[in-house]
Simulated scan of single mutants.
Amino acid sequence: MVRINQLKTLLLLMLLSGLIVLAGYLLVGNETGLYYGLAFAAFSSFGSWYYSDQAALSAFKAQPIAREEAPELYERIEKLCDRAELPNPKLYVLPSESPNAFATGRDPEHAAIALTQGIIDLLPPDELDAVIAHELTHVRNRDTLTQAVAGTLSGSLTYLGRILTIGALYVPIARIGRRGNNPLAILFLLVIGPFSAGLLRMAISRTREYAADEGAAEITGNPLALVRALTKLEEIGQKVPIHGNPAFAPLFIVNPLSKEGLMKLFLTHPPTEDRIERLKAIAKGTPSANTSKAMSPAA
Rank of each mutant, 00 (worst) to 15 (best):
E214M: 08
N222C: 07
D274P: 00
K90W: 10
S44N: 11
E31M: 10
L226H: 02
T291Y: 10
G285K: 05
M202Q: 13
G24W: 06
L184D: 13
F102R: 08
A247L: 15
L38M: 15
R275E: 00
I77P: 02
A281K: 13
Q6C: 07
L73C: 03
Y35Q: 05
S98V: 08
T32A: 13
G18S: 12
T220I: 09
S58C: 06
A168I: 06
V2G: 13
P87A: 03
M14N: 14
S58P: 00
T272I: 09
G105F: 02
L145K: 12
A111R: 04
G237C: 09
Q63F: 09
L80W: 00
E72H: 12
R178Q: 07
L153I: 13
R206T: 07
P172N: 12
S292I: 00
A70M: 12
D126Q: 12
A247W: 11
A84E: 01
I282A: 00
A294F: 15
P71F: 05
L13H: 06
Q147Y: 03
T144Q: 07
I276C: 00
K8L: 15
G151Q: 11
G105A: 08
G198A: 07
G215M: 10
P89K: 12
R83E: 00
P99V: 07
L128E: 03
D82C: 03
S196L: 15
P87W: 01
R76M: 15
D121I: 06
S288L: 03
I132Q: 01
N255A: 02
R228W: 03
A114Q: 09
V227M: 02
I253M: 09
G47L: 09
F266V: 13
F46C: 07
A299C: 03
Y25E: 07
L34C: 08
S58I: 02
S156Q: 12
D143L: 15
S45K: 07
I192S: 08
Y92N: 01
N88C: 06
G33A: 05
S292H: 05
I120F: 11
S196R: 02
P250Y: 04
N5M: 12
T286S: 05
V21W: 11
L160E: 12
G177M: 05
R106M: 09
R142I: 11
L184A: 03
N30I: 07
S96L: 14
L27G: 14
R208N: 05
I65T: 10
A111V: 11
H269N: 11
S52G: 08
E277G: 00
A289P: 04
Y92H: 09
L200M: 14
E260M: 11
A212V: 10
D82I: 08
M1W: 05
A101Q: 12
A217K: 04
T146Q: 14
L38Q: 05
N255R: 02
A114N: 06
L91S: 01
A112K: 13
V2H: 06
L34V: 15
L267S: 05
K264L: 14
I192K: 00
P250E: 14
A217M: 10
F43R: 03
P246M: 05
E69C: 04
V131Q: 05
A41T: 11
P271Y: 00
G285L: 01
E235P: 02
K264R: 15
